[in-house]
Nucleic acid binder design. Structure first.
Lengths: 140, 140
DNA sequence: CCGAATCCGCAAGGATACTG
DNA sequence: CAGTATCCTTGCGGATTCGG
């Protein structure tokens, strides 16, 4: 019981990821709604190495279906992250490449990958510890 | 602007978000599977401002249900990103705070938020252009 | 106040078949 | 090759109720 806990504000906005000290849902939801899905980031990663054609992408991204690749790449195109170019050859030939905006995203993705690799062991260890301490508890 | 498109493949691996030049699915899937869900990042954001109790989190994060807050916070705890402390008062009182690992994530989240804000207008514009050029096409 | 447990709708995503 | 169309399963997540 600590009724005098005061407000937690304490002017401690130094670590606030948002620009504001209060809690607007920032633009974070936007990014996540855009590339937080199952495949978008992987497409961006693949395209970061250079332009790719449809089948190339599908082969490179393990487990993706044509349907999901189509949807994913269409959404990225719509948001202006990917440029889609159709060559009127026969059979049809299409290539995808990152736009300037899309390329700017790759730096973030790299940072994410770096973070993941840097903490994967610690996280795995934390999981084992948790699961060990909560034998019967099912969380996932 | 892209007057001289040049080859993005200047030696190939310079922009590769992964550590490797080839295409392993890096650790990106790991991060996204962990915090790519609907609420995790928002919880991290809120906790970045300091420790919070359950109800505080729920009130701060607009629209989240107790169920989702519980699940989210439990997963974060399991992964060692959040520390959960129970005070044996009555009624029960619990607070959540970021661990070192969790705090290290906030920097990434901030970068994400920054990117989002910096590109939101361009992306919105790209969308309008796309939707304008594809009137009847339904992508979302 | 802090949850766990249950029910349930809905949308994401996989599999398959077909077209240009 | 590069998609489109259709069906169908899975599980996320919301609403509600009950317990400590």
């Amino acid at each position: 019981m600590s009724p005098t806990h005061t407000e937690v504000t304490t002017g401690a906005a130094d670590l606030d990821p948002c620009g504001r000290a209060d809690h607007p849902d920032c633009g974070i939801r936007d990014v996540l709604d855009r590339v937080g899905d199952k495949w978008s980031v992987l497409v961006v990663v693949e395209l970061a190495s250079g332009p790719r054609r449809f089948r190339q992408l599908q082969r490179a991204i393990d487990g993706i279906s044509q349907r999901m690749l189509t949807l994913t790449v269409r959404r990225l195109e719509r948001d202006g992250l990917v440029l889609r170019t159709v060559y009127p050859t026969v059979p049809a030939q299409v290539d995808y490449r990152l736009t300037e905006t899309g390329t700017s995203l790759t730096h973030l993705v790299k940072a994410l990958a770096d973070w993941s690799l840097a903490h994967r062991d610690i996280i795995a260890q934390a999981r084992r510890a948790y699961d060990n301490g909560h034998p019967d508890h099912e969380i996932r």
